[in-house]
């Protein structure tokens, strides 16, 4: 009886299923199939015929490979540097921008600061390679002005990670400040008026009104960032790396690209991917749990 009713409902709604069909087909073919395809990590890849199950073979090789630990180490170092040095910048930026009352100046600064977010990493890498050029790049012009010698940043192992940090900052600080600016705009103006009457300086207003109001947004975004910890910026490294510095900025994703796409070790590369994916999911679920606990809002 119940089943009959169910079938009747499904029949009545056939238009809905038809409308959903293209989307669902897409998600199955281009998401679910490649996700399930990651079982390849436990197989040997065969061009002809079925793949052969080999259990944890590739993971054992991975765990014994010093190259894997190198890229893991680079991933962790670069991600940590990015969180420490980039994360606070959009917050500071939003505080600065919200202090600006003049509409026009504010609008221009915002428009300019969002722009790099819309550039591709190929373009950004091109811009930075030119700006950091050892002979006549803008940054070395500044260094020379202060009597400092030119540095070839893009080929310097010492500096390249900082190039990653600052170019990512250049790209994302403006755009990422949007969420904080929106949060600041939601603060009731009457709070500031009351504080002014009580004689609070603008610094005190920021310290006791703006910052506390921002806290939950800050926590949410920090937690979200943690979820992407294992990424460390594939497109960035892919476009900024070269033979001189690859050993210090080769990360998990670029490693997967090299051994998989370039060298054709599909199964082994998938094992490395799967390792990264599992750590990533643990981080995302963990942060989802933390976020629910501390802010009452989940990641989704």
């Amino acid at each position: 009886m119940k089943i009959k009713k169910l079938i009747k409902r499904i029949r009545e709604d056939w238009v809905l299923y038809l409308m959903l069909l293209p989307g669902i087909t897409y998600f199955i073919v281009f998401h679910i199939v490649p996700i399930l395809g990651m079982k390849l990590a436990f197989q040997d890849y065969r061009i002809i015929g079925d793949n052969e199950w080999v259990g944890l073979k590739h993971f054992k090789v991975l765990m014994d490979s010093s190259a894997f630990y190198d890229v893991l180490k680079n991933t962790i170092i670069i991600s940590t540097m990015k969180i420490i040095f980039i994360f606070p910048i959009p917050i500071i930026l939003s505080l600065l921008i919200s202090e600006v009352r003049s509409g026009r100046f504010r609008k221009y600064v915002q428009a300019v600061s969002y722009l790099p977010h819309f550039l591709s990493w190929v373009v950004i890498a091109g811009v930075w390679i030119s700006f950091l050029h050892p002979a006549d790049g803008g940054f070395n012009v500044i260094r020379n002005f202060f009597q400092l010698p030119s540095i070839d940043f893009m080929t310097s192992k010492e500096h390249i990670r900082w190039v990653l940090v600052f170019s990512e900052m250049w790209r994302s600080a403006g755009w990422d400040s949007i969420l904080y600016i929106a949060a600041i705009m939601k603060i009731s103006p009457s709070l500031y008026e009351a504080a002014k009457i009580d004689g609070a300086s603008s610094f005190q207003q920021m310290r006791y009104i703006t910052l506390p109001a921002l806290l939950s947004t800050v926590i949410t975004i920090f937690i979200l960032n943690l979820g992407f910890f294992m990424n460390a910026g594939f497109d960035q490294v892919f476009n900024m790396s070269n033979d001189s510095v690859n050993s210090v900025i080769d990360i998990l994703d670029t490693y997967v690209y090299r051994i998989g796409i370039l060298n054709g070790q599909y199964a082994y590369a998938t094992a490395a991917s799967l390792f990264k994916g599992v750590v990533g999911i643990v981080l995302i679920l963990g942060t989802h749990y933390l976020s629910k606990k501390y802010t009452g809002k989940g990641v989704w």
């Binding site: 998600f27 073919v29 281009f30 998401h31 679910i32 199939v33 490649p34 996700i35 395809g37 990651m38 390849l40 994703d253 997967v256 690209y257 998989g260 796409i261 599909y266 590369a269 998938t270 991917s273 799967l274 994916g277 990533g280 999911i281 995302i284 679920l285 989704w300």
Partner: peptide, 19 residues
Amino acid sequence: FFLIVIMVVDPSMITEYLL
């Protein structure tokens, strides 16, 4: 539910390429 799974789980670039 599956959409949320898809949002959280990224397929490997290798299996996408093979697909």
